[in-house]
């Protein structure tokens, strides 16, 4: 698990956005890690991803540049992403791999 403070901060912020989007009866914050996938692990609906995208835009603005990040992906590919993939894109640097 990374200890990069920027990545950890963004993970915490995205986790809070996910709980806000999905509702805390369905999603507990402690379930979300860098390896969590939107579809397999969170069963996120497409519309919830769009709602999350809105919160990301409000929080990170144009810097998040979700459009170029997502432009070549269909919804299935988007939902197959991990939270870590999104964190890495937003922080602009790959989240460091777990120590061997």
């Amino acid at each position: 698990m990374t200890t990069d403070p920027t990545a950890m901060r963004i993970l915490a912020e995205i986790t809070a956005m996910l709980v806000q989007t999905v509702g805390d009866e369905f999603l507990l914050a402690e379930e979300v890690t860098f390896d969590t996938t939107f579809n397999e692990d969170l069963a996120l609906e497409s519309i919830e991803f769009v709602a999350l995208a809105e919160l990301l835009r409000q929080r990170y603005g144009a810097a998040a540049d979700l459009i170029s990040f997502l432009a070549e992906k269909d919804m299935e590919e988007i939902l197959a992403l991990t939270v870590g993939d999104l964190v890495a894109h937003i922080s602009g640097t790959p989240v460091s791999a777990p120590a061997a």
Binding site: E45, I47, F49, L70, K73, D74
Partner: peptide, 10 residues
């Protein structure tokens, strides 16, 4: 609205 998101909107 999500049916448009990845298909046309982005």
């Amino acid at each position: 609205l999500s049916s448009f998101y990845a298909t046309l909107a982005v």
